[in-house]
Amino acid sequence: MEQLKFDYPSAVRPVTKRAHVGVVGSGDMEVLMQPSETGGAQVSILTSVNGFGASWKAVMDRFFAKYDGAVRIDINDAGATPGSVMLRLEQAVEMIAPREVIKQ
């Protein structure tokens, strides 16, 4: 069990909605995305798989390189692959702002 936290202070575009996607089943995770209360974006991850801090940081860096919403993200993880993490994040964004597709 590991708790990871990342901040992305430059993600400042206001968002108004919240979204929940995914299930904490084997190889999957849930993400809760909602407007940040403090400005910038904060990510908090609770994962049952230890030792993947660097991979998590890489995925989050990649996500916030394309996305600038000021969101609070909470993740409960049961061993999702980096690919499914990105998919879940994109699904959450799609729910809070259907037309603001992530910059490609």
């Binding site: 069990m1 929940h20 299930v23 904490v24 995770m29 849930e30 809760l32 609770l46 994962t47 049952s48 909470d74 409960n76 993880d77 049961a78």
Partner: peptide, 14 residues
């Protein structure tokens, strides 16, 4: 969330 799962190294669900 379950307070008991994290005590045993298992991720809870919201």
């Amino acid at each position: 969330e379950s307070p008991w799962l994290p005590m045993q190294g298992i991720a809870p669900q919201s």
